[in-house]
């Protein structure tokens, strides 16, 4: 049962990876980054439950909680650059 859920999550994980390969707006790539960051943490949590491995679950929780802080700085930087009229 959980293996089916994992395969579904892997399929969903491929969507932002595909989006990353396309050359669109840079904000679309940022969306792909946030999507990948969250999905990788969730896959870690699911596999942790499947294997009953709490060390991996802890890594998933910490990544989910604090792994996205660099995203804020990047978004701020890109917004400032858009304002200066590049």
């Amino acid at each position: 049962m959980l293996t089916v859920v994992l395969w579904g999550m892997i399929g969903a994980f491929l969507i932002p990876i595909y989006q990353m390969t396309r050359r669109g707006d840079i904000w679309e790539t940022m969306l792909a980054l946030s999507s990948v960051a969250t999905k990788s943490s969730l896959i870690m949590l699911l596999v942790a439950v499947m294997r009953d491995d709490w060390m991996m679950g802890l890594v998933g929780v910490i990544t989910l909680a604090v792994g996205n802080a660099g995203f804020m700085l990047l978004a701020h930087l890109l917004r400032r650059m858009a304002q200066t009229g590049r």
Binding site: M20, I26, A32, A37, S40, G67, L74
Partner: peptide, 8 residues
Amino acid sequence: VVRGILGS
């Protein structure tokens, strides 16, 4: 940005 994705 892609470096962030690679890290994840």
